[in-house]
Amino acid sequence: MLLVVTYSKGARTSLRNVCRTHEETIVRRFGRAALLAETEHGAFLALRLREKHPDDVQVERTAPFNEFRDVPTAVREAAAAYEGREDRNVPYAKFAAGSDHPSPAALKRREL
């Protein structure tokens, strides 16, 4: 999908108007940002916004996230184990130390 983020009042108003007029292409709207369908119409609307407010509109393309395909098992298991921990007050770094779970530093270092 196309993620459109606005950074000024004017751009935010334009985005709001676009969302109101083109519901079929708007997947979701959040305040000053919106997800547009990945169609030529979505791109057309995003580009129009950027044309109108060059500095205040950011357009990014999102990709579907499938943790079973995109994320190593160790990371999924670490997330599940940490959320299932008994002591709610233990920070993840401490939780991971002395276990097989990856450290926060390792998680930050490795790209998906």
Partner: peptide, 17 residues
Amino acid sequence: RAREARDARERRLRLRD
């Protein structure tokens, strides 16, 4: 560079509001 500048714009928008 754009990310840094956008942080500044975001602060500006919050201030504007």
